[in-house]
Design a protein around this nucleic acid. Sequence first.
RNA 1: GCGACUGUAGUCUAGUGGUUAGGAUUCUGGCCUUCCAAGCCAGUAACCCGGGUUCAAAUCCCGGCGGUCGCACCA
Length: 514
Amino acid sequence: MSTGNIYETITEIAKRRGFFWPSFEIYGNIAGFTTYGDVGVKLKRNIEAQWRESFVRRQGFFEIEDPIVNSSKVFEASGHLANFKEYAASCSQCGRGFRADHLIEEKTGMEHVEAQGGDAIKRLLVENNIKCPVCGGALKEPTLVLTMFQTQIGATGTEVGYMRPEAAQGMFTNFKRCYQANRERIPFAISQQGKVLRNEVSPRRGMHRLREFTIMELELFFDPQNPACPWFKDVEEEKVRLYTEEMEEKGAKEPLEITIKEAVAKGLVITEWQGYFMGVGKRFMQSLGVPPERQQFRAHLPQERSHYSSQTFDHEVYTKSWGWIEVAGHANRTDYDLKAHQKGSGVDMSVLRKDGTRFIPHVIEPSYGADRLMFVAMETAYELRETAKEKRTIFRFPRNLAPYQVSVQPLVTKDGLPEKAMTVYDTVLAEGYRAVFDDGGSIGRRYARQDEIGTPLAVTIDYTTMEKGIITIRERDSWEQVTVHVDELPARLHAYFRGAEFRSLGQLVVRGAE
RNA sequence: GCGACUGUAGUCUAGUGGUUAGGAUUCUGGCCUUCCAAGCCAGUAACCCGGGUUCAAAUCCCGGCGGUCGCACCA
């Protein structure tokens, strides 16, 4: 067991138990790529399912699945090809690399130099006689750093494609078909979960910044003249911890605690829809185990915002490993993207109002990163429990988030107990639960193993099972046990995973008093 | 991308020019075992990659790749 910090401890367990590990290990790793193991895949899928439950299913929103490799035309139109560039200048003398636009800004006091484009940056570097800030050497001509992965489509390689850096463009380029499938009603939303790729300059901290990761995005299309959200009441009383743009500028240390309702009423959050999704996002995060006091929303200052956004709040979560980290962006993308694709493709993206006028829908986008959330879920659930004899790792995942829900095991591996346990295991599987059978080592060892992958319940078959059909259910969090007849097991599992108290499942076992 | 530190079984580590590369733990098999990593026996399993120095490199040097931290970056 590592004596290091919680991040090291979790990554160690992750490798050992099969949550995740660095990709391409046998050939030497490449930073920014992660492979999920069995329990990791299951945990991640459960997070994705929970997101879908929170953001899509209840509202009846749409889902799509769009290619990862996109036509270059998509990103020409969206502005990514122009905005995903970074100009880096390196020193001919000491070899150090710098952001060319930042050097210009330092020297001249200009702002947003990057937006002026590469030619301007090259010219400004020369005009202002900018040298290496470390050794004073001459700077080489700036080189373009594109943070989108480029590829060739087809054998001839004449068609250039790009790996999508966000899933959102699929919702915009397919907007018209989805709108029609929704019988031309608005507001409505299109969502997508999928892999996206960003060729990060410097991936760090494992899951925190990956080059290939899973994004969970939703684009809500609405009429700016009718910006009401019909579900707003569901979340309006939710309190959120908020840093407004003004607070950010002043460097406020403590967030505003405010209900969604007030935040929208006071204009701190511009639209009801954005407020709604922030409230949904807060609840979603709670469903992953993150309490409200470890969540906050932080406004982007204008110069921080993406090229498409008029207002953005990062949804941040406090982690022991890294402090506050961004797990989502809640952006007001206005009509930027649909307009851009209308211009790029020549296809009319406007929709018809009842009064006969036409408009291009505005868009609110909540965008969550699944991989970061998986780490957050693990860190939040992590407990090191000290007993008289040892230190035990427990992942106290919310019941339905756990990779496996039930483990089944014989108390001892003789006298027909393993065979009986196998029939119980089959029953649990037939009921649809994610279950694991374990007959290795002692009973204590098996409980410890299940604690370490966060399995909420363990079902043990002992001699009373053979005699009377009574089994023991043991709970991960409390280490308490109840007994129940094996015929009752499916109903009790059902109750537990719908939220029933553990002790209500059966007769509480008191060891040592027997 | 820059700097500092760093890379030994699945995991954690000892070893710092010549070792059968040691230990702990996990894991597998066996014995045992009527509820929390018990015990006993056996077994599998490692020097990040590529050059160089040397009679000899896990050990020293250079480069690459990875990791941690700091700076920068995070559209």
